[in-house]
């Protein structure tokens, strides 16, 4: 749990001061490493608010990055379940 909070804080700080090619991969790595990484969605929306533009994929002002992370998280849920059953 502490590790999860720490990683979220690191990503948050990276969004503020580091290039996108640092924090975007970390976000996706976080999504793979931690189960049900819902904080990632909030962090991606934070990216969109801080650095975002009018780049959207839906009329709901959804950033492509946020949508990609949601898809990754949803796809990872059944994969994680399957992996656990064999451990």
């Amino acid at each position: 749990m502490i590790r999860r909070v720490l990683v979220s804080l690191v990503i948050f700080a990276s969004i503020l001061v580091l290039p996108y090619w640092v924090y975007v991969p970390i976000l996706f790595v976080g999504a793979v490493l931690f189960s049900f990484f819902w904080e990632g969605i909030l962090l991606v929306f934070f990216v969109h608010v801080v650095h975002g533009s009018e780049v959207t994929v839906l009329p709901l002002l959804v950033s492509p990055l946020a949508l990609s992370l949601l898809i990754v998280l949803v796809l990872l849920l059944p994969i994680r379940e399957s992996l656990r059953s064999y451990v």
Binding site: W38, I41, H48, V49
Partner: peptide, 28 residues
């Protein structure tokens, strides 16, 4: 259930965050 929770967080974020940009940028 988890997929629904993710979707709820996603939709809430999409609706709420655009209204926070002025506050967030002024703070940061």
């Amino acid at each position: 259930k988890r997929i629904v929770i993710l979707l709820v967080i996603f939709i809430s974020g999409a609706v709420v965050f655009p209204f926070l940009d002025a506050l967030v940028i002024s703070t940061i």
